[in-house]
Design a protein around this nucleic acid. Sequence first.
DNA 1: TATGAATGAGTCTTCATTCAT
DNA 2: AATGAATGAAGACTCATTCAT
Lengths: 242, 242, 242, 242
Amino acid sequence: MVKKHSTPRREPRRVPPRAPAPPAPKWTRRPDERPRELLNAALRVFAARGYSATRLSDIAAAAGVTKGTIYYYFKNKDALLLRLAEAADQSEVDRLAALVATSTGPVSAQLRTVMRKGFADPTDETRRLLRIVYLALHTDAPHLFAKVVQHALVDGWALITTLIERGKATGEFRADADGETAARIFTSGLLLQHLWRGSMGLDAQDPFDRERMVDSTIDLFLHSLRPTVRVRAARGHRRTHT
Amino acid sequence: MVKKHSTPRREPRRVPPRAPAPPAPKWTRRPDERPRELLNAALRVFAARGYSATRLSDIAAAAGVTKGTIYYYFKNKDALLLRLAEAADQSEVDRLAALVATSTGPVSAQLRTVMRKGFADPTDETRRLLRIVYLALHTDAPHLFAKVVQHALVDGWALITTLIERGKATGEFRADADGETAARIFTSGLLLQHLWRGSMGLDAQDPFDRERMVDSTIDLFLHSLRPTVRVRAARGHRRTHT
Amino acid sequence: MVKKHSTPRREPRRVPPRAPAPPAPKWTRRPDERPRELLNAALRVFAARGYSATRLSDIAAAAGVTKGTIYYYFKNKDALLLRLAEAADQSEVDRLAALVATSTGPVSAQLRTVMRKGFADPTDETRRLLRIVYLALHTDAPHLFAKVVQHALVDGWALITTLIERGKATGEFRADADGETAARIFTSGLLLQHLWRGSMGLDAQDPFDRERMVDSTIDLFLHSLRPTVRVRAARGHRRTHT
Amino acid sequence: MVKKHSTPRREPRRVPPRAPAPPAPKWTRRPDERPRELLNAALRVFAARGYSATRLSDIAAAAGVTKGTIYYYFKNKDALLLRLAEAADQSEVDRLAALVATSTGPVSAQLRTVMRKGFADPTDETRRLLRIVYLALHTDAPHLFAKVVQHALVDGWALITTLIERGKATGEFRADADGETAARIFTSGLLLQHLWRGSMGLDAQDPFDRERMVDSTIDLFLHSLRPTVRVRAARGHRRTHT
DNA sequence: TATGAATGAGTCTTCATTCAT
DNA sequence: AATGAATGAAGACTCATTCAT
């Protein structure tokens, strides 16, 4: 196909009249920052538009590069998302597990920590976005969702369940509480609230302070696990409303 | 007009021009039902694959028709989602409110009822699947999404909050519980679990009995609102976890 | 994403002033002809441009449809080529084998027939093009070439080899001829000549009558297999130039 | 200038500023050899994958450099092919002609030599691979293709034809053989077999010893030109196959 | 010289939508 | 009322080529 090729290679450089400012390179090399930049951009756009609705060119534009560059660092669109998920995966749950393993004190305190750090901390922008992506994933890309779920969700729930069981063993929590359900419901509740409020505009219709929600959720969580105090006399009545 | 009808679906024989009415004709599907059939199909597939990932041909196949037919009844793909959402918008909350208004008995029982009927009934396939709307709609029709959210969610939470406040007033629930958060967290938790589980994916990796989850959630809900009983013998850090 | 949608559905048709000629449909349905048309177009374009250099849009244009239509009938570009090849596969070699099986007479006559019908008949445009595609395939799409080769080439050679062996058995051919090589060389020679002359412009530089080439090739083929006549006296000398 | 040289290839140690000449320095690859290396690599990959299917990065990898380097030595991908073709254009035929001119002995021996040296030597990797040019070049540089064809093919055929005619004159070959066709068919057959076999593909499905193929081809060639000996006892249809 | 990051035009492919039947 | 052939715009992805280093 022998295309024409007008650009001469190695033109003997014309002596510049006055050594002009180096002509502002069209682009710069940032081999180390690029992947992170791309990931960040992808995260933002995915969270805002949803995975399917996001075009590669959106991400590229958001990262200030062209489409091709994305493919230099990532195999394809899915890979971006997966990498995003892995980042959360590995650090998040494992870190929490480590945290719990080393910490002493009452189980309730540990549970509080896990909920805060793992599912509720609204201070870290990246992590919040990430959570949103997780959720959108289910709708937009179920096949990816499945891959992501195992570590981040199931393992997280397992960790919490373990804590609760430990609390039951020490008598801190009531033995008849369904720890597995508790682990799932409180975390899911918090997640969905974050999703709706994070980028879906629920705050406009239903303003709610995030800090309060997290604090109250933990409060409710722990209260729901409190040992039932059997007031001997009132036994029958108690059973009813519990 | 039995002229061309190249792909008859469940029409065992062409009706002869003048035949006597067949004794017990298999309920001929009336054309009026088509839209509903299509919506049902759409609902199932949207729930299973997500809105974006669903092809019109998937829906058509699920409904036993061809793509073209969908366009006879709906303007386009979005219209299907919209129509679905409108159905969800049917003031289910009002029904619940009415239910509560007429019922007597302890608040905890009412709360239990509301949770069951409004957010947790896993037997009603339609309602469960419809929840997909809560995620997909935001991207594809923010306007409608806001409306649905208001009607189904915010109003629902208000209803529950009211109940909790009533419980506090009667002393059934502890006064320091954050009723507004409770209303949001437990419902959201249940909803998200249903969303994730409604259409394969999570269930494969984290099987969980639906009934148990609902029952346990209500149990946790009520426990989390129980009045705090001060146990005389304060064992050091006990205060913390209550 | 709820796109605008200006096209009204079922506009009550404006009464035309004078019943104008039906407004020349933008396209017509040709479900039966299309596949063949597409295949023909593909064959022509592949032969002219080569497989890789051919864009789907070229084929579409050549067939008078749009790109999308191709995908209605074929899975992808490769599938077009494969289908083209299959067409030749099945018919060609099997037909030749059948032809040989039923024919009587001297082996040399059968061989002549096989060469003519199978590798040399220049009268059928489609088959000629097909052969060209075969050859180009090796350069353009080795992965497809491999798939195609088995039936068309290897089996074809096997057929010819069988014939030659039969000829040896009857004494028609010399026993020391390498039938397997002969099968490959004469057919390949004819093929490559056809390729070069068919669409690669060799005729301009080296004009050659096709009929003559085929006839002469068969003549050479048969001569090369002729029994060696041992003239007892001249044995030594004969060996040299043979 | 041992400044930046981030990917030294086979340069075991940086030469120290003032060291005595190392006793036997592994032949440092001189930069002059780069182009040749690249061409060799290109040749191999083109032959294996086909021109279009070959990515510059494939060639670069095969040559042990990176893509950018190729552009330092060649204008573009086409240029590689062109340069390859030019190499093929080096009048090999002239050499053969000279060879023939000086040789004595029977024509059949000369013919054997020409076939061996010119079209069949499977030990010379470069020349064998170069044949890919005969197919790819046509699409990508018809102009050059024509030139190569003239030089390598048409002239080659002329040479062989001349030999055959000479053989006819001396009575070594039968007078009624079509020498021009013979020249074309046997060379083309051998070439196409080499092309197909040179780069995997055919060999996998139809293994064949190269030496045998060449030897047998020459054998067939000479046999096909043998004078016809009329065997007295005409056994019916014998005439046909001669 | 050489590298390899970045580019962007070119293609394949998908699929919502239209429309002849 | 329904079909399914055909469309065409959109978007993912590839890769030859450029260029900062």
